[in-house]
Deep mutational scan, measured.
Amino acid sequence: KRYRAVYDYSAADEDEVSFQDGDTIVNVQQIDDGWMYGTVERTGDTGMLPANYVEAI
């Protein structure tokens, strides 16, 4: 699945990823209600991200 960031996010922990509004997130997997795991296409960084900061595309 592919998602697009709708807000900027700065990683708060080493297992999270930072991204900017408009970034595409690929290979996304749902972890639980609030978190997903995926790769930021622009940077190649992979990690956890907050589900409410992205939307499906």
Rank of each mutant, 00 (worst) to 15 (best):
E41F: 08
V26K: 08
E41Y: 07
E55K: 12
D23S: 01
E55C: 12
N52I: 13
S18P: 03
V54Y: 02
Q20C: 14
A56C: 11
A12S: 11
V40I: 08
V17Q: 00
T24C: 12
D21P: 11
T39W: 04
T24V: 15
K1V: 13
K1H: 10
I57L: 11
P50T: 03
M36W: 11
D23T: 00
G44W: 06
A12C: 14
G44P: 01
S18D: 06
I25G: 01
I25W: 02
M48K: 15
E16Q: 14
Y37Q: 07
K1C: 14
I25P: 01
D32P: 06
V54F: 07
D32W: 11
R42I: 05
Y53A: 14
I31Y: 09
Y53P: 01
D45G: 07
E16N: 05
S18M: 01
T46G: 04
T39C: 09
G34N: 15
N27M: 12
I31W: 09
D33Q: 10
M48A: 07
M48I: 11
G47L: 02
Y7W: 12
G44H: 05
P50V: 04
V17L: 07
V40A: 02
Q29I: 15
F19S: 02
T46I: 08
Q30T: 11
F19L: 06
W35H: 05
T43M: 03
A11K: 08
A11D: 02
Y3K: 01
R42T: 05
A51D: 05
A51E: 07
P50L: 07
S10N: 13
D15E: 11
A5I: 02
A51I: 11
D45S: 10
P50I: 04
I25L: 10
V40F: 02
V28S: 05
V17R: 02
A5H: 00
N27C: 13
T46A: 09
Y7I: 09
Q29S: 13
A11Q: 06
D33M: 09
F19Q: 00
D13A: 14
Q29A: 10
S10K: 13
T43V: 02
A56I: 14
A11E: 02
D8W: 09
I57H: 07
Q30D: 09
A56F: 12
G22S: 05
S10G: 07
R42C: 05
E14I: 12
D15N: 15
V40E: 02
Y9G: 00
M48Q: 06
E16R: 07
A12E: 11
V26D: 05
E16C: 11
T43C: 04
L49C: 04
S10A: 12
D15K: 14
Y53F: 11
Y9H: 06
Y53N: 05
V54C: 04
V6D: 02
A11S: 07
A11H: 04
V26P: 00
E14C: 13
Y9W: 06
K1P: 10
V6C: 12
V54H: 02
I31F: 10
T43H: 02
S10P: 06
A51S: 12
V17N: 00
D21H: 15
A51M: 11
R4L: 07
R2L: 10
E14V: 13
L49V: 10
E55Y: 09
G38I: 03
V17I: 10
M48L: 14
A12Y: 09
K1L: 13
V28A: 10
R2M: 10
Y3Q: 01
V28Q: 03
V26G: 06
M36P: 00
A12K: 14
R2V: 12
